[in-house]
Design a protein around this nucleic acid. Structure first.
Lengths: 209, 209
DNA sequence: TACGATACGGAGCGCTGTTCCGCTTTGTCA
DNA sequence: TGACAAAGCGGAACAGCGCTCCGTATCGTA
């Protein structure tokens, strides 16, 4: 959690009143984080309509805890969304350090990104009402993630692994489009196609060039 | 789930093969009609997601009867849709005979049409999957209803109640658009606006001209 | 350490979709 | 006409869900 954003009274972009509890008890804060992670995992496998019970079980908490932190399903989905955006954004630089190469980092990052898209697409359905808030979240998504993706692309290009020229927005949108459709048709695995897309970025290996 | 659903496959001009059961027992045929009428009424007040129990109660039948006739909710919604289209189409000429004037007939017809739109809009949500079948149903809707509306408009124009020129498709689409949104906000009553729209067609009464 | 305040867990309620089977109605045939 | 299989009906019963409520456990503080 690199950005705990402690007690500052600054005009916080958001969460000033609702976000990760500022004055909450330690266990409550822990549970909130646990819930966000667990919900994200469940969303990936069962969609954003997964039973509350299942999410509670995954997190190892009672249902009451979920309802206390996130009174409505939309609240939970939105919170997971933001959490995932943040996690994805923070993962970029970290992967760049830990992975074998910038391109490897990009592939790992894309994997996280695909997980996140499940939540993102589910969000649209879960928020048919207040579409205004949805657009704000989309803007947040772009602000945070495009630069990270850009950074990964640049690093890979600088390392000579891929040709420069492909832009982050375009790539992210392409990945996003590959992931539309909530069916679990075994004949269509978005992840496989995303990997293909990424491999397409690669320059021919020097051995063959 | 590529379900081999025969009802959505062929947009049969009408009931030649699937409609009100040809070889069914008399009581079964009666029940099917009763159900279609009852479901339509419930849809208007509670939307297409109304509990099956409520529809069964409205029709005065058991739940088993609904499931026997319409295995899935989509089946029921589609059947109601067709039924409503037919009813609306047949009501046009009848109202022209029975109402005080062609314009009065048009207003009454519009009232039926607004009821029907609830089902129509619900249909889009209920058929997110096989959108192909949906387009076929929409075509059926246009084929059957536009001519009827045209007839009503022409009759009113011929009687000198309204100015000629307004086309049926445009009017129907206008009414349809006034009815979007499923909220039961008391501040927005589509029916009131539709009535306004229709009054707008009227020529000034001869007394003032 | 002692004691509110805070948060937790999950049993319980009411609602839903869906199935299943004993009973009723219908159509037919002698 | 009466009898009898087949077709159809009703609704109890089951399973799964969202959501609430309150006795209990944990935390932070004096």
């Amino acid at each position: 959690m690199p950005d705990p954003n402690p007690s500052a009274a600054a005009p916080d972009t958001n969460r000033s009143a609702k976000g990760p509890g500022r004055n909450k008890r330690a266990d409550a804060q822990r549970n909130e984080q646990t819930l966000l992670t667990a919900a994200a995992a469940v969303f990936v496998t069962s969609g954003v309509d997964a039973p509350i019970r299942r999410i509670a079980a995954e997190a190892g908490v009672g249902m009451g805890t979920i309802y206390r932190h996130f009174p409505t399903r939309a609240d939970l989905v939105v919170a997971v969304y933001r959490h995932q955006v943040d996690a994805c954004a923070e993962a970029g630089p970290r992967l760049l350090d830990s992975a074998d190469s910038p391109f490897a980092a990009l592939r790992e990052w894309a994997d996280l990104f695909v997980d996140f898209l499940v939540t993102k697409h589910g969000l649209a359905n879960a928020m048919q009402s207040n579409s205004g808030g949805f657009e704000a979240l989309h803007a947040y998504f772009l602000d945070r993630l495009v630069p990270v993706c850009e950074q990964l692309l640049d690093a890979a290009a600088e390392a000579g692994e891929i040709d420069p020229g492909t832009r982050a927005y375009e790539l992210m949108r392409g990945i996003g489009n590959l992931c539309v459709g909530r069916d679990s048709d075994p004949r269509y695995d978005p992840r496989r196609l995303v990997d293909l897309l990424l491999k397409g970025l690669l320059r021919p290996r020097s051995t063959s060039a």
